[in-house]
Design a protein around this nucleic acid. Structure first.
Length: 120
DNA sequence: GTTCTGACA
DNA sequence: TGTCAGAA
C-alpha cells in the first residue's frame, strides 16, 4: 500500500454535514481565529477529528451560551494550559499563562476586584 | 462539481 | 448568516 493518514480529515462540506454547522459559519469561526484546519496545496480546508470536537465546543458556547466569537477565543485560551520548564525545579511546571495574563489585566484596571477587601 | 475569497443585505 | 459572483 502507499500510505494512509492515521487521522481522518474532512472537507468543509463533510464537516458541515457531521456537525450540522454551515460552511459559511465554519469559515467565520476560522476568521475569528477559533480554528486552524489544515490546508491542501490548493488551499482547501481539511478538518481533523480534533477540529470537529473543537467546533462542537465553539458551537455550544456560541449558540447555547450566547458568547460572541472574541469571547469564545478568550475562553478557549483559558482552557489551554501553558507548559514551560521551571529551571529551579525537576518537575515540569504546568501554568495557565492566559489565565494569569487576564488576572494581571483585571488587577491593572481594578486593583481591588480580586482582593478580599473588595465589597459589593 | 467543490471550494475559496470578498461582498452585500 | 445566507447567498451570490468570479476564479481556481
Amino acid at each position: 500500500m502507499k500510505y494512509q493518514q492515521k487521522e481522518p480529515l474532512f472537507s468543509i462540506s463533510v464537516t458541515a454535514k457531521i456537525t450540522g454547522i454551515s460552511p459559511r459559519v465554519l469559515r467565520s469561526y476560522e476568521e475569528a481565529e477559533l480554528l486552524s484546519p489544515y490546508r491542501t496545496e490548493g488551499n482547501t480546508r481539511l478538518y481533523s477529528q480534533g477540529d470537529v470536537q473543537r467546533i462542537r465546543v465553539i458551537y455550544y458556547l456560541h449558540k447555547e451560551r450566547e458568547v460572541n466569537l472574541p469571547g469564545i477565543k478568550i475562553i478557549l485560551g483559558l482552557l489551554s494550559p501553558h507548559f514551560h520548564e521551571d529551571a529551579s525545579s525537576d518537575e515540569p511546571v504546568v501554568k495557565n499563562k492566559a489565565a494569569d495574563d487576564l488576572i494581571h489585566k483585571i488587577r491593572e484596571v481594578a486593583p481591588d476586584l480580586l482582593s478580599g477587601t473588595f465589597k459589593e
